Structure formats: C-alpha cells, structure tokens
Computed example of a mutant assay.
Amino acid sequence: MVDLASLPPQLRRAVDDEMRRLRAGDGVLYGDMTSEEAHDLESADGRALPPDGALDRFIAHATVPPADVAASDLAGYTLVGVVPEGPGLDGPWSSVKRVYRRPDGVLVMLHEWAYVAEGGGVLGVRELMNASVRHGTARCPAQFAIRRAPTGQTVSELRWFTDAKVFTLSVAQDVLADGGKDHGKAWMLRLAEAIE
C-alpha cells in the first residue's frame, strides 16, 4: 500500500486519471466500465467452462489451490462455470473466475489471482481504498465500487488484496439500489469474509 503522493510522476498521473474517472460518495466509488469490461460481464456465463469437472481440472493444473467458498453464500448458489486464466492455455493456471447464479437469477462472480505464484505483485493506492475485508487473522485493504456500462448494465465490485492473492467479487447489479436491504454492501463484505 502506498500513498498517491509517493508514486513516481507518470504513475501518479495514471492514478489521478483513474480517481477523476471515479466519483466517490458515501464510502462507494462510482465509475464507468470500459466496453471490454462490459462485454466480459455480459458474456461471463457463456464463456465459462461447464462446472462438471472444470473446477477439478483447474485445481489439478493450478499454481495455488483456489479459495474455499464452502462457508460462504456462494456454496448455496448455482455454479454456472469456471474461467481459468494464464499464464498458459493448458496451465499451470494462477487465476480463476467462478461464475454463479444467485437463487434470484443475479450473476455473481469470484475472481482470484495468485499473483505471488506468478512472481508478480500488486500496488494498492491508499486513496482508492474505501473498505477492508477480514481474511484469516488479517484485515486486508479493499475497494468497493459500483460501475456502469454504456448499455446500462451495472456491476458492484469488492476487490481486496492479501499477501498472496487479489480477489474480486462482482455482482451484476447495483447492490445499493434497493437500499441494500438483502444484498447490499454489508452482504458483499460478509460473503467476502467467509471465503478462505
């Protein structure tokens, strides 16, 4: 985690541009999705490998086992499919997106990237963090955002960073639209904290 002021000038400009794109309010970052992000969201269930055996295949070829979701709400949702990612097409894979459908039909995705296993790293800018997620015994910095595509599609995202992975929990709806009664920001935080 670094402060914006400590970044080199070129990187600071890039983060400044991102911060201008996001509009902060009430502990939420609001922004727009790129057309690529919108396409990924709208086609997620169609691009996922069928769940039968896909997760087992990912586990067999993964650089790091995927997180355990058995204690979370995800365990009770329908697993639509799995999207393994890089660095090689046949593995070993360091990233996986699991695509679920809630009982009400809303798409929920959990993406995790084992950046340490790839020899990579992540840079978190303190000014862009507006939440935290308990992961094991640690509190991890997190970002909660609601973003909209030009098509009107909305996604609520909670992204958090551990010492080994980056997690992104995406819900294909504005979780604050109904006042967050049933599936709001607090629900997303609880769901995230139940993932091990």
Rank of each mutant, 00 (worst) to 15 (best):
residue 135 H to I: 03
residue 18 E to C: 01
residue 55 L to G: 10
residue 21 R to W: 10
residue 29 L to C: 02
residue 100 Y to P: 04
residue 22 L to Q: 08
residue 100 Y to E: 05
residue 29 L to A: 07
residue 42 E to A: 04
residue 115 Y to Q: 06
residue 173 Q to N: 01
residue 178 D to R: 09
residue 18 E to K: 00
residue 113 W to Y: 12
residue 5 A to R: 13
residue 156 S to N: 03
residue 15 V to L: 02
residue 79 L to M: 09
residue 196 E to R: 15
residue 22 L to V: 02
residue 154 T to A: 09
residue 91 G to L: 12
residue 99 V to Y: 00
residue 128 L to A: 09
residue 29 L to M: 08
residue 43 S to I: 03
residue 135 H to C: 02
residue 79 L to K: 02
residue 21 R to C: 07
residue 132 S to Y: 05
residue 164 A to F: 10
residue 7 L to T: 10
residue 61 H to N: 15
residue 191 L to F: 04
residue 60 A to V: 00
residue 24 A to G: 11
residue 133 V to H: 09
residue 169 L to I: 14
residue 47 R to A: 08
residue 178 D to S: 09
residue 72 S to N: 13
residue 98 R to D: 06
residue 71 A to P: 00
residue 38 A to G: 03
residue 67 A to H: 06
residue 93 W to H: 13
residue 72 S to K: 10
residue 106 V to N: 07
residue 173 Q to S: 13
residue 165 K to R: 15
residue 180 G to P: 10
residue 170 S to D: 04
residue 10 Q to W: 05
residue 91 G to A: 11
residue 146 I to K: 04
residue 62 A to H: 02
residue 127 E to W: 04
residue 10 Q to N: 07
residue 54 A to I: 13
residue 28 V to F: 07
residue 149 A to N: 11
residue 186 A to R: 12
residue 128 L to S: 08
residue 147 R to D: 02
residue 13 R to H: 06
residue 71 A to L: 15
residue 126 R to E: 12
residue 124 G to N: 12
residue 76 G to D: 12
residue 133 V to L: 11
residue 38 A to L: 02
residue 55 L to W: 15
residue 158 L to C: 11
residue 85 E to F: 02
residue 7 L to G: 06
residue 133 V to C: 08
residue 68 D to M: 06
residue 38 A to W: 00
residue 17 D to K: 05
residue 153 Q to W: 00
residue 28 V to W: 07
residue 135 H to N: 05
residue 33 M to D: 02
residue 182 D to H: 14
residue 36 E to I: 06
residue 56 D to L: 10
residue 104 D to W: 06
residue 108 V to T: 13
residue 136 G to H: 09
residue 68 D to T: 14
residue 38 A to D: 01
residue 113 W to P: 01
residue 156 S to P: 04
residue 110 L to V: 12
residue 65 P to F: 14
residue 91 G to K: 11
residue 144 F to N: 03
residue 6 S to V: 11
residue 81 G to M: 11
residue 66 P to K: 07
residue 177 A to K: 14
residue 179 G to S: 12
residue 46 G to A: 10
residue 62 A to W: 03
residue 76 G to W: 00
residue 104 D to Q: 05
residue 183 H to V: 09
residue 182 D to F: 03
residue 181 K to C: 01
residue 146 I to Y: 01
residue 194 A to R: 14
residue 34 T to F: 06
residue 97 K to P: 05
residue 162 T to A: 12
residue 85 E to Q: 03
residue 21 R to G: 15
residue 117 A to N: 07
residue 117 A to C: 02
residue 107 L to E: 12
residue 172 A to Y: 00
residue 66 P to Y: 01
residue 8 P to G: 07
residue 103 P to M: 12
residue 151 T to A: 13
residue 133 V to R: 08
residue 145 A to G: 10
residue 133 V to Y: 03
residue 166 V to N: 01
residue 20 R to Q: 13
residue 12 R to Q: 14
residue 17 D to E: 00
residue 6 S to L: 14
residue 166 V to A: 14
residue 188 M to L: 15
residue 19 M to P: 00
residue 125 V to A: 09
residue 67 A to T: 13
residue 104 D to T: 12
